[in-house]
Design a protein around this nucleic acid. Structure first.
Length: 258
DNA sequence: CCTTGTTTATAGCACC
DNA sequence: GGTGCTATAAACAAGG
């Protein structure tokens, strides 16, 4: 049985920032009148998946912001500060990430670990960001054989759920990753969101309500920077293997046992 | 001053 | 075309 990650060792994970990516941006006006730079986005992957991956790759499954940045260092190209900012926004605006006080006895709003909150991940989020990261989530120990079988069908998210559902070795569990949840059509998910799911989403604004599903998750490139079509500039390509064999990782072979 | 975290605004894209 | 979601940029607050 192979690991989910080993399946995608040849896939590239890239995170760049358009600011230094060489492609200029647009200038937009802020409401205050101050100029605001805009950059075209060419994204086929998400920060959320990569951040979660980094966090779940740590022994305690929680990291400080600095540690997260260090882990993602090999993936950062271009304006590091911009990416830091983006990651910060990602952490604080997504419910799938939650803070854990550095010292519970002396809580400091600026000293926190960040961990993945699986309850904050909806089925859609899961399929969009975590489909290929299934094994990093305890409680979702999907046999990778199922994923193997699903590989050829990866254009459509549903077959994964079907394969998982067919697997007898997967225990019944509840929550957003439950088989039932994953099997639900998006319309059903929408209905759920109007009831129980909506209660779970603590954000009122649209930016934090989970929605769109990634129709094609075949190659989870992670990039917020420019890509030229789907062939990436050689200077920013990065092999997935580096993340999981990087000295930055606490356990270089962890991807095998996740 | 730097770091960390939050909030707001908006462009771009995909889906319906 | 409308809507939802993500990425990006910037401003701001607070702690060290």
């Amino acid at each position: 049985m192979s690991s989910v990650f080993s399946l995608s060792l040849d896939q590239e994970l890239i995170m760049t920032n358009g600011v230094n990516g060489g492609l200029g941006g647009l200038l937009a006006e802020r409401s205050s009148g101050a100029p605001r730079r805009r950059f075209k986005r060419y994204t086929t992957g998400t920060y959320i998946g990569l951040i979660a991956c980094a966090i779940q790759g740590s022994p305690d499954k929680m990291l400080t912001f600095k540690q997260i940045m260090k882990k993602l260092e090999p993936f950062v190209f271009g304006d590091k500060r911009g990416i830091e900012n983006n990651i910060r926004v990602c952490l604080s605006s997504n419910r799938c990430f939650e803070k854990v006080p550095f010292d519970p006895n002396y809580p400091n709003p600026k000293k926190n670990f960040w961990k993945v909150n699986e309850n904050g991940i909806t089925p859609k989020m899961f399929r969009r960001h975590f489909k290929y990261l299934i094994n990093i989530f305890p409680g979702l120990s999907i046999p990778t054989q199922a994923v193997d079988e699903c590989k050829d069908n990866s254009h459509a998210p549903e077959p994964l759920a079907c394969k998982v559902a067919e697997s007898k070795s997967v225990g019944k569990f509840t929550g957003p990753f439950s088989i039932d949840s994953l099997l639900k059509s998006d319309r059903e998910v929408k209905r759920m969101r109007s009831t129980s799911l909506e209660e779970r989403v603590h954000y009122g604004d649209a930016q934090r309500v989970v929605g769109r599903e990634l129709a094609s998750a075949k190659i989870p490139l992670l990039s917020s920077g420019p890509q030229h079509g789907h062939s990436l500039p050689p200077h920013i390509t990065y092999n997935h293997h580096v993340l999981f064999s990087s000295p930055l990782m606490y356990r270089p072979t962890r991807y095998v046992s996740w």
